[in-house]
Protein backbone atom coordinates (compact mmCIF):
# COMPACT_ATOMS: atom_id res chain seq x y z
CA UNK A 1 0.00 0.00 0.00
CA UNK A 2 1.27 3.40 -0.94
CA UNK A 3 2.48 5.78 1.69
CA UNK A 4 1.69 8.72 -0.54
CA UNK A 5 -1.42 10.78 0.03
CA UNK A 6 -2.63 13.21 -2.61
CA UNK A 7 -0.13 14.93 -4.86
CA UNK A 8 2.86 15.92 -2.75
CA UNK A 9 2.43 14.43 0.69
CA UNK A 10 3.81 11.28 2.28
CA UNK A 11 2.54 9.68 5.46
CA UNK A 12 4.85 8.12 8.04
CA UNK A 13 2.93 5.14 9.37
CA UNK A 14 5.59 4.09 11.87
CA UNK A 15 5.68 7.62 13.28
CA UNK A 16 9.39 8.46 13.61
CA UNK A 17 9.98 10.30 16.85
CA UNK A 18 12.17 13.24 17.76
CA UNK A 19 14.02 11.67 20.67
CA UNK A 20 16.61 14.38 21.19
CA UNK A 21 16.94 18.00 20.19
CA UNK A 22 19.33 20.87 20.79
CA UNK A 23 19.66 24.53 19.78
CA UNK A 24 22.60 26.95 19.85
CA UNK A 25 22.21 30.65 19.02
CA UNK A 26 24.31 33.81 18.91
CA UNK A 27 24.36 36.68 21.34
CA UNK A 28 21.80 38.84 19.55
CA UNK A 29 19.29 35.97 19.29
CA UNK A 30 19.95 35.32 22.98
CA UNK A 31 18.48 38.74 23.76
CA UNK A 32 15.31 37.93 21.89
CA UNK A 33 11.96 36.62 23.18
CA UNK A 34 13.16 32.99 23.29
CA UNK A 35 16.20 33.53 25.48
CA UNK A 36 14.87 31.10 28.08
CA UNK A 37 14.12 28.39 25.53
CA UNK A 38 17.48 28.06 23.74
CA UNK A 39 19.77 25.39 25.12
CA UNK A 40 22.96 27.37 24.62
CA UNK A 41 23.62 31.05 23.89
CA UNK A 42 27.05 32.10 22.63
CA UNK A 43 28.83 34.84 24.49
CA UNK A 44 30.85 35.82 21.47
CA UNK A 45 29.96 35.21 17.86
CA UNK A 46 33.35 33.69 17.08
CA UNK A 47 32.75 30.85 19.60
CA UNK A 48 36.47 30.92 20.35
CA UNK A 49 37.40 30.20 16.73
CA UNK A 50 39.59 32.17 14.32
CA UNK A 51 36.92 32.86 11.68
CA UNK A 52 33.13 33.07 11.47
CA UNK A 53 33.09 30.07 9.13
CA UNK A 54 34.83 27.98 11.77
CA UNK A 55 32.42 29.28 14.40
CA UNK A 56 29.47 28.14 12.27
CA UNK A 57 30.95 24.63 12.06
CA UNK A 58 31.60 24.52 15.77
CA UNK A 59 28.00 25.54 16.51
CA UNK A 60 26.72 22.74 14.28
CA UNK A 61 29.08 20.23 15.84
CA UNK A 62 27.99 21.29 19.30
CA UNK A 63 24.29 21.10 18.40
CA UNK A 64 24.65 17.65 16.82
CA UNK A 65 26.65 16.07 19.60
CA UNK A 66 24.45 17.60 22.32
CA UNK A 67 21.25 16.40 20.64
CA UNK A 68 22.70 12.88 20.49
CA UNK A 69 23.52 13.16 24.18
CA UNK A 70 19.95 14.34 24.91
CA UNK A 71 18.67 11.29 23.06
CA UNK A 72 20.81 9.21 25.42
CA UNK A 73 22.63 7.67 22.51
CA UNK A 74 26.23 7.14 21.57
CA UNK A 75 27.59 8.49 18.29
CA UNK A 76 28.17 4.91 17.13
CA UNK A 77 24.42 4.31 17.30
CA UNK A 78 23.77 7.07 14.76
CA UNK A 79 23.22 5.61 11.29
CA UNK A 80 23.00 8.80 9.28
CA UNK A 81 23.47 12.54 9.53
CA UNK A 82 21.31 14.70 7.20
CA UNK A 83 21.86 18.41 7.00
CA UNK A 84 22.85 21.53 5.13
CA UNK A 85 23.60 25.22 5.44
CA UNK A 86 23.80 28.40 3.37
CA UNK A 87 27.47 28.57 2.47
CA UNK A 88 28.75 27.65 -0.99
CA UNK A 89 29.08 23.87 -1.41
CA UNK A 90 27.47 23.51 2.05
CA UNK A 91 30.93 23.42 3.59
CA UNK A 92 29.77 24.02 7.15
CA UNK A 93 27.72 20.84 7.42
CA UNK A 94 30.01 18.55 5.44
CA UNK A 95 33.13 19.81 7.26
CA UNK A 96 31.32 19.24 10.55
CA UNK A 97 30.28 15.73 9.49
CA UNK A 98 33.91 14.63 9.06
CA UNK A 99 34.34 14.78 12.84
CA UNK A 100 31.60 12.22 13.43
CA UNK A 101 32.76 9.44 11.11
CA UNK A 102 29.16 8.47 10.31
CA UNK A 103 27.31 8.28 6.95
CA UNK A 104 26.31 11.76 5.80
CA UNK A 105 23.80 13.21 3.33
CA UNK A 106 24.33 16.88 2.51
CA UNK A 107 21.23 18.66 1.26
CA UNK A 108 20.52 22.22 0.18
CA UNK A 109 17.16 23.91 0.43
CA UNK A 110 18.37 27.35 1.48
CA UNK A 111 16.41 28.35 4.60
CA UNK A 112 13.97 25.42 4.15
CA UNK A 113 16.78 22.95 4.94
CA UNK A 114 15.54 22.05 8.45
CA UNK A 115 12.15 20.85 7.18
CA UNK A 116 13.81 19.17 4.21
CA UNK A 117 16.26 17.25 6.40
CA UNK A 118 13.45 16.21 8.77
CA UNK A 119 11.45 14.92 5.80
CA UNK A 120 14.44 13.01 4.39
CA UNK A 121 15.48 11.70 7.82
CA UNK A 122 11.93 10.63 8.73
CA UNK A 123 11.62 8.73 5.46
CA UNK A 124 14.74 6.68 6.20
CA UNK A 125 13.59 5.96 9.75
CA UNK A 126 9.98 5.22 8.81
CA UNK A 127 11.09 2.82 6.10
CA UNK A 128 13.26 1.08 8.70
CA UNK A 129 16.37 1.56 6.63
CA UNK A 130 18.08 3.33 9.50
CA UNK A 131 17.40 3.30 13.23
CA UNK A 132 18.71 6.66 14.39
CA UNK A 133 19.09 9.67 12.09
CA UNK A 134 20.36 13.15 13.00
CA UNK A 135 18.88 16.16 11.16
CA UNK A 136 20.81 19.41 11.62
CA UNK A 137 21.24 22.83 10.05
CA UNK A 138 22.91 26.05 11.03
CA UNK A 139 23.80 29.53 9.81
CA UNK A 140 25.90 32.44 10.98
CA UNK A 141 25.01 36.09 10.36
CA UNK A 142 28.56 37.10 9.51
CA UNK A 143 29.30 34.27 7.05
CA UNK A 144 26.01 34.76 5.20
CA UNK A 145 26.46 38.51 5.14
CA UNK A 146 29.88 38.37 3.47
CA UNK A 147 28.82 35.69 1.00
CA UNK A 148 25.52 37.20 -0.08
CA UNK A 149 25.87 40.90 0.67
CA UNK A 150 28.62 43.31 1.69
CA UNK A 151 31.64 43.34 4.00
CA UNK A 152 30.58 43.74 7.63
CA UNK A 153 32.39 47.03 8.12
CA UNK A 154 30.89 48.74 5.07
CA UNK A 155 28.82 51.67 6.27
CA UNK A 156 25.63 51.13 4.31
CA UNK A 157 22.01 51.05 5.40
CA UNK A 158 19.94 47.87 5.32
CA UNK A 159 16.68 48.47 3.47
CA UNK A 160 13.46 48.31 5.53
CA UNK A 161 12.30 45.12 3.77
CA UNK A 162 15.48 43.20 4.68
CA UNK A 163 15.81 40.41 7.22
CA UNK A 164 18.58 39.49 9.60
CA UNK A 165 20.36 36.15 9.11
CA UNK A 166 20.14 34.26 12.38
CA UNK A 167 23.31 33.03 14.04
CA UNK A 168 22.20 29.66 15.25
CA UNK A 169 22.06 25.92 14.75
CA UNK A 170 19.55 23.25 15.60
CA UNK A 171 19.67 19.49 15.59
CA UNK A 172 17.05 16.76 16.05
CA UNK A 173 17.56 13.01 16.46
CA UNK A 174 14.90 10.81 14.84
CA UNK A 175 14.21 7.22 15.85
CA UNK A 176 11.41 4.66 16.11
CA UNK A 177 12.51 3.62 19.59
CA UNK A 178 11.98 5.60 22.77
CA UNK A 179 9.49 8.39 23.37
CA UNK A 180 9.13 11.73 21.64
CA UNK A 181 6.89 13.82 19.45
CA UNK A 182 6.36 12.10 16.15
CA UNK A 183 6.61 13.24 12.57
CA UNK A 184 3.47 12.04 10.82
CA UNK A 185 3.37 13.74 7.43
CA UNK A 186 5.74 15.51 5.08
CA UNK A 187 4.68 17.66 2.14
CA UNK A 188 7.48 18.27 -0.31
CA UNK A 189 7.26 21.61 -2.07
CA UNK A 190 7.58 22.72 -5.67
CA UNK A 191 9.91 25.49 -6.78
CA UNK A 192 7.81 28.58 -7.41
CA UNK A 193 8.82 31.91 -8.87
CA UNK A 194 6.50 34.90 -8.92
CA UNK A 195 9.05 37.23 -10.47
CA UNK A 196 10.42 39.03 -7.42
CA UNK A 197 13.99 40.18 -8.04
CA UNK A 198 14.65 42.33 -4.98
CA UNK A 199 17.23 40.43 -2.90
CA UNK A 200 16.29 42.58 0.07
CA UNK A 201 12.73 41.33 0.01
CA UNK A 202 13.07 37.56 0.51
CA UNK A 203 9.76 37.32 2.33
CA UNK A 204 7.84 38.37 -0.77
CA UNK A 205 9.91 35.99 -2.93
CA UNK A 206 9.21 33.00 -0.66
CA UNK A 207 5.57 33.63 0.31
CA UNK A 208 4.11 32.10 -2.91
CA UNK A 209 6.06 28.87 -2.34
CA UNK A 210 4.75 28.69 1.23
CA UNK A 211 1.24 29.20 -0.14
CA UNK A 212 1.71 26.45 -2.73
CA UNK A 213 3.00 23.92 -0.18
CA UNK A 214 0.41 24.78 2.50
CA UNK A 215 -2.52 24.51 0.07
CA UNK A 216 -1.20 21.17 -1.27
CA UNK A 217 -0.79 19.96 2.29
CA UNK A 218 -4.34 20.86 3.33
CA UNK A 219 -5.75 19.29 0.16
CA UNK A 220 -3.62 16.13 0.37
CA UNK A 221 -4.33 15.46 4.04
CA UNK A 222 -7.92 16.74 3.89
CA UNK A 223 -7.26 19.08 6.81
CA UNK A 224 -7.89 22.79 7.37
CA UNK A 225 -5.75 25.39 9.16
CA UNK A 226 -7.99 24.95 12.21
CA UNK A 227 -6.82 21.36 12.66
CA UNK A 228 -3.41 22.59 13.85
CA UNK A 229 -2.47 24.26 17.10
CA UNK A 230 0.39 25.98 15.36
CA UNK A 231 1.17 26.56 11.70
CA UNK A 232 4.62 28.01 11.51
CA UNK A 233 6.53 29.13 8.41
CA UNK A 234 10.31 29.25 8.28
CA UNK A 235 11.50 32.77 7.79
CA UNK A 236 9.10 34.87 5.77
CA UNK A 237 9.49 37.75 8.21
CA UNK A 238 6.75 40.22 9.06
CA UNK A 239 6.08 41.43 5.53
CA UNK A 240 6.33 37.92 4.04
CA UNK A 241 3.86 36.44 6.52
CA UNK A 242 1.37 39.25 5.90
CA UNK A 243 1.66 38.50 2.20
CA UNK A 244 1.19 34.77 2.85
CA UNK A 245 -1.96 35.43 4.89
CA UNK A 246 -3.36 37.52 2.05
CA UNK A 247 -2.45 34.88 -0.54
CA UNK A 248 -4.02 32.10 1.53
CA UNK A 249 -7.19 34.07 2.11
CA UNK A 250 -7.38 34.72 -1.62
CA UNK A 251 -7.39 30.94 -2.07
CA UNK A 252 -10.02 30.30 0.55
CA UNK A 253 -7.86 29.41 3.54
CA UNK A 254 -7.87 31.67 6.55
CA UNK A 255 -4.71 31.60 8.65
CA UNK A 256 -5.77 32.76 12.05
CA UNK A 257 -4.16 33.18 15.44
CA UNK A 258 -2.56 29.75 15.19
CA UNK A 259 -0.31 31.01 12.41
CA UNK A 260 3.13 32.44 13.08
CA UNK A 261 6.54 32.76 11.47
CA UNK A 262 9.92 31.79 12.96
CA UNK A 263 11.61 34.89 11.49
CA UNK A 264 8.98 37.10 13.05
CA UNK A 265 9.11 35.33 16.42
CA UNK A 266 12.84 35.10 17.02
CA UNK A 267 13.61 38.82 17.49
CA UNK A 268 11.97 41.59 19.49
CA UNK A 269 10.69 44.61 17.60
CA UNK A 270 13.32 46.83 19.16
CA UNK A 271 16.25 44.72 17.89
CA UNK A 272 16.38 46.63 14.58
CA UNK A 273 16.16 43.63 12.32
CA UNK A 274 13.36 45.23 10.27
CA UNK A 275 11.36 42.23 8.99
CA UNK A 276 12.84 39.68 11.43
CA UNK A 277 15.20 36.72 11.14
CA UNK A 278 16.14 34.48 8.23
CA UNK A 279 18.58 31.69 7.43
CA UNK A 280 18.38 27.94 8.06
CA UNK A 281 19.48 28.55 11.63
CA UNK A 282 16.30 30.56 12.24
CA UNK A 283 13.69 27.82 11.78
CA UNK A 284 16.13 25.17 13.08
CA UNK A 285 16.77 26.94 16.38
CA UNK A 286 13.13 27.97 16.93
CA UNK A 287 11.84 24.43 16.23
CA UNK A 288 14.42 22.77 18.45
CA UNK A 289 13.84 25.12 21.35
CA UNK A 290 10.54 26.96 21.66
CA UNK A 291 8.25 24.77 19.55
CA UNK A 292 9.37 21.37 20.90
CA UNK A 293 9.42 22.75 24.45
CA UNK A 294 5.86 24.02 24.12
CA UNK A 295 4.88 20.61 22.76
CA UNK A 296 6.45 18.99 25.82
CA UNK A 297 4.30 21.29 27.94
CA UNK A 298 1.23 20.35 25.96
CA UNK A 299 0.54 23.88 24.67
CA UNK A 300 0.85 22.66 21.08
CA UNK A 301 -0.43 19.20 20.17
CA UNK A 302 -0.22 19.27 16.40
CA UNK A 303 2.24 21.54 14.60
CA UNK A 304 2.64 22.17 10.89
CA UNK A 305 6.26 23.23 10.42
CA UNK A 306 6.75 24.75 6.95
CA UNK A 307 10.26 26.06 6.39
CA UNK A 308 10.75 28.31 3.38
CA UNK A 309 13.85 28.90 1.31
CA UNK A 310 14.94 31.35 -1.40
CA UNK A 311 17.00 29.45 -3.95
CA UNK A 312 19.18 32.27 -5.21
CA UNK A 313 22.90 32.82 -5.52
CA UNK A 314 24.92 36.00 -5.94
CA UNK A 315 25.57 34.96 -9.53
CA UNK A 316 21.87 34.58 -10.43
CA UNK A 317 21.16 37.97 -8.87
CA UNK A 318 23.94 39.68 -10.82
CA UNK A 319 22.63 38.17 -14.04
CA UNK A 320 19.26 39.72 -13.28
CA UNK A 321 17.34 36.52 -12.59
CA UNK A 322 14.26 36.52 -10.40
CA UNK A 323 14.25 34.63 -7.07
CA UNK A 324 12.71 31.14 -6.96
CA UNK A 325 11.42 29.91 -3.63
CA UNK A 326 10.68 26.56 -2.08
CA UNK A 327 8.83 25.36 0.99
CA UNK A 328 8.74 21.95 2.64
CA UNK A 329 6.34 21.10 5.44
CA UNK A 330 6.30 18.42 8.13
CA UNK A 331 3.59 17.67 10.66
CA UNK A 332 4.77 17.06 14.22
CA UNK A 333 2.30 15.48 16.65
CA UNK A 334 2.65 15.49 20.40
CA UNK A 335 3.57 12.34 22.27
CA UNK A 336 1.24 12.31 25.26
CA UNK A 337 3.77 10.35 27.29
CA UNK A 338 6.28 13.19 27.16
CA UNK A 339 6.12 15.71 29.96
CA UNK A 340 4.02 13.44 32.16
CA UNK A 341 7.08 11.72 33.57
Amino acid sequence: MSNKVGEQTIIFKNKPKIIGNFSVVGEKEGHGPFKDYFHHILEDDLFGESSFEHAERKMLEYAISSSIEKAKLNINKIDLIVGGDLLNQIISTSFTARHFDRPFLGIYGACSTMAESLAVGATFVDGEYFKNVVCATGTHFSTAERQYRFPLELGNQRPPTSQWTVTGAGSSVLSLNSNGHSITYATLGKVTDYGINDVNNMGAAMAPSAMSTLISHFQDTKTTPDDYDLIVTGDLGKLGSEILMDLMEHNGYKLGKNYNDCGQMIFNNNQKTFQGGSGCGCSASVLNSYILKKMDEGVFKKVLFAATGALLSTLSTQQGDTIPGICHAVVIERDERVGRK
Binding site: F141, S142, E153
Partner: peptide, 16 residues
Protein backbone atom coordinates in the same frame (compact mmCIF):
# COMPACT_ATOMS: atom_id res chain seq x y z
CA UNK B 1 45.79 52.64 5.04
CA UNK B 2 43.40 49.88 3.94
CA UNK B 3 46.40 47.54 3.69
CA UNK B 4 47.76 48.48 7.11
CA UNK B 5 44.44 48.46 8.96
CA UNK B 6 43.41 45.33 7.08
CA UNK B 7 46.43 43.61 8.58
CA UNK B 8 45.80 44.95 12.07
CA UNK B 9 42.04 44.60 12.54
CA UNK B 10 39.53 41.76 12.25
CA UNK B 11 35.94 42.15 11.14
CA UNK B 12 33.29 42.22 13.82
CA UNK B 13 29.67 41.09 13.78
CA UNK B 14 27.19 43.91 13.35
CA UNK B 15 25.09 44.67 16.41
CA UNK B 16 22.21 46.31 14.55
Amino acid sequence: SAFIFGLIFNSKTKKF
